[in-house]
Design a protein around this nucleic acid. Structure first.
Length: 435
RNA sequence: UCCGGGUUGGGGUAGUGGUAUCCUUCAGCCUUGUGGUGGCUGAGACGUGGGUUCAAUUCCCGCACCCGGACCCA
């Protein structure tokens, strides 16, 4: 017996069926918006992350030298890869680019709830549009993915913020404020003591009076967001609040405004965000834990050697989504489902095989005996795979040119002429022949 | 990397310094044709390495893995 590697999981069919449903739900939404699926490598040059990712990510890299002496790493995130792909074909791609991808990523860190060393996420990105409509479309896709999973406004909330508003307000206090550091402090606001939070702001270059005033300004409601420009007298802030308002207006038209809450204290840690940022929170859980986040990152492509290209996207992790769905009671039962089991008794394989084929042509999941088992054992197996209907193709039935249809939930069964089965029915059951 | 709690047949459990309980599961049979619901028979476990001891699944230490937390964040 071998153990699996720490933080790497096996998924057995019951759970996989539920995960498949969730993945398909997410991808269907993206496909309906015209996001095109891309495929990406599991390995990239280690250098790409050392150059372009934060130090934390590099520390968590699974990296090694391959047999050709190349330093390679298992991809810890998709963004550098899509940036690389985009830059490589930038001239020939017609903008805006809308890409989607679901796949595993790897990070060497300590597993805990909703976090593993191998984890799956669905990345959704738009490249080449700086328009608020693009931000709003990303938000719409995010909301629709969640609602298609069966979640409602009771279960989640998307908090929207804007990096440029934070930066502009901070700068209005003085040119020497360390904006990234202050934003990191804001990002931690909910987790630390209020005094420590204020200390961190002071550390970033504000004085205590400014820190208080700044924090007060962050509490502002969506309706009053535009007053920030007058409060600070900053044109940068005005441009940023106008942009946020435009995104919210577009989100209104897209039918997802009700799921969005303006919350300037939502900052997100990553340095590369530039405009709108957002974070999805579990509103049912006692701990309001971040489920996933996203936002605009207009400078990143240029950093990869491309023409300056605006970009916006998000990437929900499947493990945390699963937790959210389970808490909300919308995660499907983790059990197998089977439409038909075609049971053979004696040498009835030719007929059983024909029936199984006919049913499969109608798109059903159909199993039949491949282990030469007894009647009772086959019935037990059919029960074990949750077969809804058993078609008994026995020697006795065939002597009368019949088969027996049995519904497994109530045990009712009926003989049906062989020539009439499956007949014209898409999904023939006991009911169809009961009269 | 750090902290806390775990690890007993495939799954779930009881228990003990002298190798282990019950439920379920699985296989077969009763029953060449009825599962979820009977009866019988059988299979199957103390994570790993070391220490203490006459004897360790039990006590001690290390490690691995699992669950959760810190850090960090997707």
């Amino acid at each position: 017996m071998y153990d699996s590697v720490k933080g790497f999981r096996d998924f057995y069919p019951e759970e996989m069926q539920a995960r498949r449903w969730a993945m398909d739900t997410l991808e269907d939404v993206a496909q309906r918006y015209g996001f095109r699926e891309i495929g990406t490598p599991a390995l990239e040059p280690t250098e790409m992350y050392v150059d372009k990712s934060g130090e934390e990510i590099v520390e968590e890299l699974y990296s090694f030298e391959d047999k050709g002496g190349r330093e390679v790493a298992l991809t810890p995130e998709l963004t550098p890869t899509v940036a690389r792909m985009f830059v490589a074909k930038q001239q020939e791609l017609s903008k805006p680019i809308k890409w989607v991808s679901t796949r595993p990523f790897w990070r060497y860190e300590e597993p805990q709830q909703g976090r593993f060393r191998e984890f799956y996420q669905t990345n959704v990105d738009i490249f080449g549009s700086a328009e608020p409509t693009a931000d709003a479309e990303i938000l719409a896709v995010a909301v629709e993915m969640l609602t298609d999973l069966g979640l409602t406004g009771e279960d989640f909330e998307i908090r929207v913020s804007h990096r440029d508003i934070l930066a502009g307000v901070l700068e209005s206090f003085g040119a020497d404020v360390d904006v990234p550091e202050a934003i990191r402090a804001v990002d931690k606001r909910a987790k630390v003591d209020h005094d420590d939070y204020l200390d961190a702001l002071v550390e970033a270059g504000l004085n205590y009076g400014q820190a208080d005033k700044f924090d007060e300004m962050l509490q502002i409601d969506a309706e009053e967001i535009e007053t920030l420009a007058d409060l600070t007298g900053s044109e940068d802030v005005r441009a940023a609040t106008d942009n946020l308002q435009a995104v919210l207006d577009a989100a209104e038209d897209f039918g997802v405004r009700d799921h969005l809450t303006v919350s300037l204290t939502t900052a997100r840690g990553l340095d590369y965000y530039t405009g709108v940022v957002f974070e999805c929170f579990d509103s049912t859980g006692e701990v309001s834990r971040s489920v996933f986040g996203g936002g605009r990152y207009d400078d990143l492509i240029e950093g990869f050697g491309g023409q300056p290209t605006p970009a916006v996207g998000f990437a929900p992790g499947h493990a945390t989504l699963q937790l959210l769905c389970q808490r909300a009671g919308v995660w499907p039962a983790e059990e197998l489902s089977t439409d038909y089991y075609v049971l053979q008794v004696g040498d009835t394989r030719p007929t059983a095989a024909r029936i199984a084929r006919d049913l499969r042509e109608r798109g059903h999941v159909v199993e039949s005996d491949v282990a030469d088992r007894s009647f009772g054992a086959q019935m037990g197996y059919a029960d074990g795979i949750n077969a809804e209907t058993v078609v008994i193709v026995g020697e006795q039935d065939l002597e009368n040119d019949e088969v027996t249809l049995k519904e497994m939930d109530d045990g009712e069964q009926i003989s049906v002429p062989l020539s009439a089965f499956p007949g014209d029915y898409d999904r023939p059951t006991f009911e169809d022949f009961a009269e």
